[in-house]
């Protein structure tokens, strides 16, 4: 009887521990790869690169830096991020930088047009 109670307690503790460890107190993993970045962090990163591109006009460097995110194709990633940023109402300088980067990657869509410089 006593052994059965002990076994049940061990089992109960294991179940409780697994539930706690997976749901309530999940371990915060570090050393993660950029592919796992949250959408928000990824958007910030892409905006940073778009600003850098606006300053240096180095498309190859922008492509290299965006490849860091591990998501391909990069052009589509920038386009979808730009469209999301427009929907979410990001500030104008961010949207302009994103739209320009997307357009220079050859990725265009209707919502981007107002944020691009007018053609001469």
């Amino acid at each position: 009887m006593r052994s059965l109670a002990l076994v049940l307690l061990v089992g109960f503790g294991a179940g409780l521990g697994a539930w706690l460890g997976q749901s309530l107190l999940p371990v915060e993993l570090t050393d993660n790869h950029p592919e796992t970045l949250s959408a928000s962090a990824r958007t910030h990163y892409i905006i940073n690169i778009a600003f850098a591109y606006a300053a240096d006009q180095d498309l190859a460097a922008a492509l290299d830096r965006l490849t860091f995110l591990g998501i391909s194709p990069v052009g589509e990633l920038v386009l979808t991020t730009t469209e999301s940023a427009i929907r979410e109402g990001w500030p104008l300088p961010e949207l302009r930088a994103l739209a320009r980067l997307s357009a220079d990657f050859g990725m265009m869509s209707q919502p981007l047009i107002p944020y691009l410089p007018a053609a001469p």
């Binding site: 307690l9 061990v10 089992g11 109960f12 503790g13 294991a14 179940g15 409780l16 521990g17 697994a18 539930w19 706690l20 460890g21 997976q22 999940p26 371990v27 915060e28 993993l29 570090t30 050393d31 993660n32 790869h33 950029p34 796992t36 970045l37 949250s38 959408a39 962090a41 990163y45």
Partner: peptide, 26 residues
């Protein structure tokens, strides 16, 4: 039991990393 459960959840089968923040990157 608790230690075994937590070890399983934290070491053997941790919740896969999704939606990580920049400070969690390598």
């Amino acid at each position: 039991g608790l230690a075994a459960g937590l070890s399983y959840a934290w070491l053997l089968a941790p919740v896969p990393a999704v939606d990580t923040e920049p400070h969690q990157l390598h």
